[in-house]
Design a protein around this nucleic acid. Structure first.
Lengths: 128, 128
DNA sequence: CAGTATCCCGCAAGATACTG
DNA sequence: CAGTATCTTGCGGGATACTG
């Protein structure tokens, strides 16, 4: 099956030992949910430390950031590098090669998200 | 704020009376999850009846198809038209004008989903 | 600094049976 | 034909406190 056939046939896909009905659905497993796409977007700029990411996403909880980063790492989108052995720790996150392939998808989603927010939502002023 | 600024600033967005940290996150609220993107993809071909959609997505349950269609309708992506008053009912679903704006996003997601499935997943033979 | 440990809640989603 | 009604399960995600 070439890519065009795959696109047409919307084949079942096994991922994380679960079945997904279509490549779109499998993609959502990898980058869906409230936070994964946001985290990935922040990593487009380049590598970031844990607390940098936290500051850039003030409404995420530590637990959620930690869990989502871990899942992104397991799925091969993000790499985690540790630079110290003793506290204070230095840990840096960045997109892997595979993670870089998702950048155009993120940009398309954000573009449409802005369209959707204009049509259906409401922009909120950021306060300092 | 023009679109470019919105893209840079990743503003908070209110949708469904909930807050989202970024347009990407808001987009996921509208088209994320296991099934919404799949349903929308099937409606790109044109309008479909409820049972047509079910046949094209053999692994979705009636309940889930029903709930997801209802949410897509509430969010203005899908329109629902009823053609009979007495059983057997004829109900037809189609993309709205706003729903059509999401087609390029879906195509990008599917393309990347195929890439991801090749890299991280496994294609399963469809049985009849 | 970079996380864990607990506790909790709501919702997505599946299974199955029933109905206007 | 096009759905509801029930019941159940798992997981995403929030709040808060603690730690190597």
């Amino acid at each position: 099956m070439n890519r065009e056939e795959l696109f047409e046939k919307k084949p079942l896909i096994k991922l994380h030992d679960k079945l997904f009905p279509c490549p779109a659905s499998a993609a959502m497993e990898l980058i869906g949910g409230k936070w994964k796409s946001v985290i990935l977007t922040h990593l487009i700029d380049g590598e970031k430390r844990y607390n940098e990411l936290r500051k850039e996403m003030p409404t995420i909880t530590e637990r959620t950031l930690s869990l989502q980063l871990k899942q992104l790492e397991v799925d091969g989108l993000v790499s985690r590098k540790v630079f110290t052995k003793k506290p204070p720790l230095k840990v840096v996150y960045s997109l892997t090669k595979f993670g870089n392939t998702v950048i155009p998808v993120l940009q398309t989603i954000i573009e449409w998200g802005i369209t959707a927010a204009i049509a259906k939502g409401e922009f909120i002023e950021q306060e300092k």
